[in-house]
Simulated assay, not measured.
Amino acid sequence: MTTTAQHSSSEDEPVLTILTPVRNEAAFLKSCLASIEPPSGLLCEIVLVDDGSEDESAAIAADFAAGSAIPMQVIRNGHRGKAAALNLAFLAARGDAFIFFAGDDLLVGSALPARLAAVTAGMTARSPCVAQCRYRSFSDTHPGLAGILFPRPGMEDHIAGGAVSFNRAFAGRYFPIPEQLPNEDSWLRALAIALDLQVVPLDCLGLHYRIHAGNSVGPLRSFAEADRNLRERNAAYALALERFDREITASGRRRLEAIIRAEELRSRGRWLALLFVGGLSRIDRAMMLANSAPWLYALKTRLLPKLRHWIRRRV
């Protein structure tokens, strides 16, 4: 199942579309949009979908669009969720390549040419391609969680939506995102696994990721919240197995089936059985274990400050 979007750029001058879903981000949206500063000569557009905000987000976006030098569409939608907002944004997009950009983060404009070129250069443009840059956390309210550089060592294939760029060939398979999913990240990774894609690593900082109480995922969540969110997010792997059953690679099928089995055990609290799931990567096993029981989640939370200190010393 694919979704067709508008397309009006030339092969010689690829266009980058920034897909921005927003809901109740009035506190951050002005600084978010102001950070979109592409270098001169880079063709860029913004498609922002307001997902039924109850604050001033839609008005802030409309005011910015009216004075923006970058072509920008603002689309208002009922509160249907982030996945639905991204699907709607893609339908209005004209680009050759795409990035996701949340309304509470800050973009590094100087990294946009590299993020665009990585997925549109030469033959890459004709086959599905995903690239991932680096991103760093910051926080006005939780300074202990600021300054962490991602992706962490060994987690390079755990794709973060705001750090990725991808081309139209990938987008044609990726969209529509199943709207029962809470966000885009797990669907990105599920599709990359299903198609056995190598995610292109970019050694540049492309995003400042804001940590605050409103984040849908992250270290500020309780075990119950984290467990519920993981159940919803990890449904992406079974959905990918179903949607791409006829084109999935053999290795992709094995990896997806291993993750699906591990999630079944994790959600039932069977942490010991997770140790014996075949075909699961070391990082996936560790993440499933750390989120499989309240005591393991608490242990992970206590160890995180030491881990962050170690990471900072290495980068």
Results as ranks from 00 to 15, higher is better:
residue 134 R to G: 04
residue 157 D to H: 12
residue 243 R to Q: 11
residue 67 G to E: 12
residue 206 G to P: 02
residue 24 N to E: 07
residue 4 T to P: 02
residue 229 N to D: 00
residue 45 E to Y: 00
residue 102 A to M: 11
residue 124 T to K: 14
residue 96 D to C: 03
residue 156 E to V: 05
residue 183 N to R: 13
residue 119 V to P: 05
residue 285 R to F: 10
residue 45 E to I: 01
residue 303 L to I: 15
residue 40 S to W: 13
residue 50 D to K: 09
residue 66 A to M: 14
residue 20 T to F: 10
residue 247 E to M: 10
residue 93 A to W: 07
residue 171 A to L: 13
residue 271 W to R: 07
residue 112 L to A: 12
residue 287 M to Q: 10
residue 206 G to R: 02
residue 175 F to V: 12
residue 101 F to Y: 12
residue 141 T to F: 00
residue 201 P to V: 07
residue 135 Y to V: 09
residue 139 S to H: 02
residue 291 N to F: 02
residue 198 Q to W: 04
residue 312 R to H: 03
residue 94 R to V: 06
residue 153 P to E: 14
residue 211 I to T: 09
residue 51 D to M: 03
residue 9 S to H: 13
residue 260 I to P: 01
residue 12 D to G: 08
residue 12 D to V: 07
residue 309 H to E: 14
residue 74 V to W: 00
residue 304 L to Q: 06
residue 128 P to M: 00
residue 210 R to H: 15
residue 168 R to I: 03
residue 22 V to Y: 04
residue 164 V to P: 00
residue 209 Y to D: 12
residue 237 Y to I: 07
residue 193 I to S: 00
residue 6 Q to Y: 13
residue 286 A to Y: 11
residue 147 G to M: 13
residue 203 D to P: 04
residue 141 T to S: 06
residue 214 G to H: 05
residue 44 C to P: 05
residue 78 G to Y: 10
residue 205 L to W: 03
residue 297 Y to P: 04
residue 298 A to R: 02
residue 103 G to D: 13
residue 201 P to Q: 07
residue 282 R to W: 15
residue 57 S to D: 11
residue 11 E to L: 15
residue 149 L to P: 08
residue 181 L to V: 00
residue 127 S to P: 01
residue 266 R to V: 03
residue 289 L to A: 03
residue 246 R to K: 15
residue 54 E to V: 15
residue 207 L to W: 01
residue 9 S to W: 10
residue 70 I to W: 04
residue 253 R to M: 10
residue 184 E to F: 13
residue 274 L to W: 08
residue 263 E to S: 05
residue 260 I to L: 04
residue 50 D to G: 12
residue 308 R to F: 08
residue 140 D to T: 10
residue 122 G to A: 09
residue 33 L to P: 09
residue 53 S to W: 05
residue 207 L to E: 11
residue 49 V to Y: 02
residue 128 P to K: 00
residue 48 L to F: 14
residue 308 R to M: 06
residue 106 L to E: 09
residue 266 R to Y: 09
residue 208 H to P: 01
residue 68 S to G: 04
residue 257 E to I: 00
residue 231 R to M: 06
residue 150 F to I: 09
residue 196 D to G: 12
residue 95 G to L: 10
residue 135 Y to S: 08
residue 118 A to L: 00
residue 274 L to A: 06
residue 65 A to D: 10
residue 127 S to E: 14
residue 13 E to I: 10
residue 238 A to N: 00
residue 172 G to W: 11
residue 129 C to P: 01
residue 305 P to C: 11
residue 95 G to A: 04
residue 85 A to E: 03
residue 43 L to G: 08
residue 255 R to A: 08
residue 108 V to M: 00
residue 272 L to S: 06
residue 16 L to I: 05
residue 35 S to E: 10
residue 231 R to T: 08
residue 193 I to K: 01
residue 167 N to M: 13
residue 48 L to M: 13
residue 92 A to V: 12
residue 45 E to M: 10
residue 203 D to V: 02
residue 5 A to Q: 15
residue 12 D to K: 15
residue 137 S to Y: 06
